[in-house]
Design a protein around this nucleic acid. Structure first.
Lengths: 244, 244
DNA sequence: GCGGCTTTTTGTTCTGGCGCAAACTTCTCG
DNA sequence: CGAGAAGTTTGCGCCAGAACAAAAAGCCGC
């Protein structure tokens, strides 16, 4: 229906790239230049692993453009999606939490542009650049809090509420305003959503269909738009009648 | 059956108290003395809140003796137990993850002795004491990893496996060797266990009864002893036939 | 030793949502 | 443009485990 999406272009390594990113925002141009000179930049297609769980943590990364999905795979092969990382965040920062291997796999949820540094530079960055460590730990703290919330949700809520919650989190973190409402800014399948909410793609599909009938969401293949966020909030609080 | 437990005695504030604790283990006696002089020490009865979710994070703490349970309470009043903290760990370190309020409630799971410092000293400790920050973040990282594991478990495992997992975690972190096996070192009810595993106390009770018949655990009121840890590992891997 | 409380056990019923199966729709690529 | 692949929808039976209920056991203070 639309023209083929243009391939994301490789950016020139320019100070303006990193200046808006919180971990670097307090730095001088000269310092950012230094940091960039040490980085390598790469473009990834959608659905490609940047690193895998258990591998030695040799590099840490910053996502310049696109979305990253952090997931784990159980011994029996099931996938569980832990979180999505929006552009502008560091990831793969195993060193920051005292690990020498990556604790999870990260896969591109869309085409992505990624900056990478050798892990040995981590301590140097922490020591050398003001605000780098504290901003990073703010991010770690946010992720910790988010995971905590998910545990509470999974322990206390029904499937419908959990899925509604996940949708809300997604549009908050990765939503893009479109005419019809707020669209999740990367391709996402029913299967993906089920792996974020500990359910099956069948149940997610039924829920989305029901919500679509009620005008809460609009969806097509691999795309979901929330048209009535407020209603979704009611659903995730359990204040709306079950949609089945 | 036994004589009433003697009340935990308030320790003298002595360097030997902090020397073995990882965040402080690299410090000189003089530095530890400084740190102790800034601390206040308190004894808590079992089941008392040290701080509550949402309260301004005015102090951070180190657990000298006993156990702390970190939990959250949902709007509908259900409790979810996030983790247990063994003695020797810092807790309430909101500042470390960039927060100004406590993200969860912490309650003593047993009688406990706790050291506390005003939060404004946090940055000072980080700046002044070598290894303090990195050891702390190792702890944060461990908790992050543990929570991640729990999410994966909750998403992919059956109740029986989750309860087995929780028991194993508990005896690993807070187990005490006794004649019959390894006992969880603080009072714990079926209800508590159900709040850690997202199930009901009824189901936990049935499981423990079944395991007791199989000689895997021994339990009495508020006490659980694992008599066959290896069997429990099989159960949590799903390699043993369901116990019901 | 007794009354009241908390914790644990056990039985029974009921249902959310999973498992399985099959058809349908939408994209992609030659 | 047609074939195949990938993603989605829908129907139906079933069961793990929640909900409800009630009794039993253990503990505490007086």
């Amino acid at each position: 229906m639309s023209a083929p999406t243009p391939r994301k272009t490789m950016p020139r390594l320019d100070e303006s790239l990193l200046t808006p990113m919180p971990p670097f925002s307090r730095l001088e141009k000269r310092q950012i230049r230094e940091i960039l000179d040490l980085a390598s930049v790469r473009r990834f297609d959608e659905g490609v692993a940047v690193f895998e769980e258990g591998a030695p943590a040799e590099r840490f990364y910053m996502l310049l453009d696109g979305y990253i999905r952090v997931m784990r795979i159980t011994p029996t092969g099931e996938q569980v999606i832990a979180l999505h990382i929006p552009s502008g965040q560091l990831f793969g920062i195993a060193q920051a939490i005292g690990r020498t291997t990556y604790p999870a796999t990260s896969v591109t949820a869309s085409e992505a542009i990624v900056l990478g540094w050798p892990m040995r530079l981590w301590d140097q960055f922490v020591a050398q650049y003001d605000g780098f460590a504290s901003e990073t730990y703010k991010t770690v703290g946010q992720r910790l809090g988010e995971m905590n919330n998910r545990i509470v949700e999974m322990a206390t809520q029904q499937v419908e509420q959990r899925v509604a919650n996940s949708l809300l989190r997604l549009i908050n973190q990765t939503g893009r305003k479109v005419e019809a409402g707020i669209e999740i800014d990367f391709p996402i399948t029913r299967q993906d959503l089920s792996e974020m909410t500990a359910t099956t793609l069948h149940t997610v599909s039924r829920l989305l269909s029901a919500w679509e009938k009620q005008g809460v969401v609009a969806s097509r293949r691999k795309r979901i738009t929330v048209t009535d966020p407020h209603r979704l909030v009611l659903i995730c609080r359990g204040e709306a009648p079950p949609s089945r």
